[in-house]
Nucleic acid binder design. Structure first.
Lengths: 212, 212
DNA sequence: GTCTATATCCAGATAGAC
DNA sequence: GTCTATCTGGATATAGAC
């Protein structure tokens, strides 16, 4: 008897088409904003009729979810590539640079992953689990830079989000805010290390259980 | 002969209806996001048929523009109410508190005024002029707190936007990031005053012509 | 000023032939 | 798997009667 073929050619082709659709969806999202993603336009870009997409993704939400998961996976890889030498300053700067770079290089992806601007989209638990890993990884990296206070972590995410947002909204394609990254890392580090000199305004109960 | 009436009752009524429509539009925008604003829903809320709205606003864009102008006007009033005592620290904290409070109290308004997420909307020159006044006012207030370096101003706007964004996206209705405002003001002030101690990484040509 | 009726266009999604 | 045809519903905007 002849055994089953080792390679699943059908599955490979299907998987490739799914990736092609997903890439086309990113292109449309970059052009129209994530909220302006339309399946018709995606279909046209890959040379299919709109209903044919449903053979690959059950719904628009399923497609968005795949994009969300892919974005989180990419971020995970970037996070793993950040060098963690012993120096808090360079570590913090490297993390900040990676994160702001990741966000500003694709505003549509930033919108899908971190803003709440998409109409009725909610990631599936499977995809969200990857986002959780992103946050846990960040937590570890900040700890490596000496930042463990939840309030300080929140301050870091605020600065990262702020640099990203201003760069995207007010100087797209430029570097008016991204060039402040090293300055911002210094500022954050000084702030986190200057606890003793200032009155403990809100340090008695800094964060409570962080549920992000 | 009888002169013209002193009060323009017709004009007053019309103006009131325009305001009513605008308020209904804000409600819809808060519910669906600014991008999800639909004239049908606005009309239903004010008890009119959709085409009747066109007697008050020439287009959806005209309505959005009126909302944009109104938001900028409100911000202008808030800005004028910020106390500018001589102390840089309390001044900076007051400005930051006002701004982040203004943004977080109405995310839809923040979206319309400061994000670029609305499909094809561009404010008219008249409305945009108010936004320019907002920025000029901010510039003056930061100067009163001793911040005049454009790079430091950009850092301020980044921190303000970051606190706002994180608060809205990850803790809507809470205070996980807004309670960091005083800390952030201290951090910013320390940073702007610590010029001499650090190497002038990017202070030789800090900002170039700021065109925001 | 408000209405009905309509124009035009787009969206996501499904049925069923091939 | 892909297609044609269609369903359902939504959008902005205009024409013209009253």
């Amino acid at each position: 008897m002849i055994g089953e073929p080792t390679r699943d050619r059908r599955g490979e082709r299907r998987s490739a088409t799914r990736a092609e659709i997903r890439e086309a969806a990113w292109e449309v999202a970059r052009a129209n904003g994530v909220a302006g993603l339309s399946l018709r336009e995606v279909a046209q870009r890959v040379g299919l009729r709109p209903p044919s997409l449903y053979s690959y993704y059950d719904s628009k939400n399923a497609l968005l979810d795949a994009m969300f998961a892919q974005g989180c996976q990419t971020l995970l890889q970037r996070q793993a590539a950040v060098p963690l030498d012993g120096d808090p300053q360079s570590t913090l700067a490297a993390v900040l640079r990676m994160f702001v770079g990741f966000c500003t290089e694709d505003p549509a992806r930033y919108q899908l992953l971190f803003q709440r601007t998409v109409p009725g989209f909610m990631p599936t638990p499977e995809s969200y689990a990857i986002a959780i890993r992103n946050i846990d990884t960040l937590r570890g990296q900040l700890a490596a830079a000496g930042i463990e206070d939840p309030a300080h972590m929140d301050m870091f995410t605020a600065v990262a989000a702020g640099l990203t947002d201003q760069q995207i909204a007010n100087d797209p394609g430029g570097d008016r805010w991204t060039r402040l990254i090293d300055d911002a890392a210094r500022m954050l580090l000084t702030h986190t290390q200057a606890r003793a000199t200032h009155p403990p305004t809100c340090s008695t109960s800094p964060g409570g259980p962080t549920d992000d």
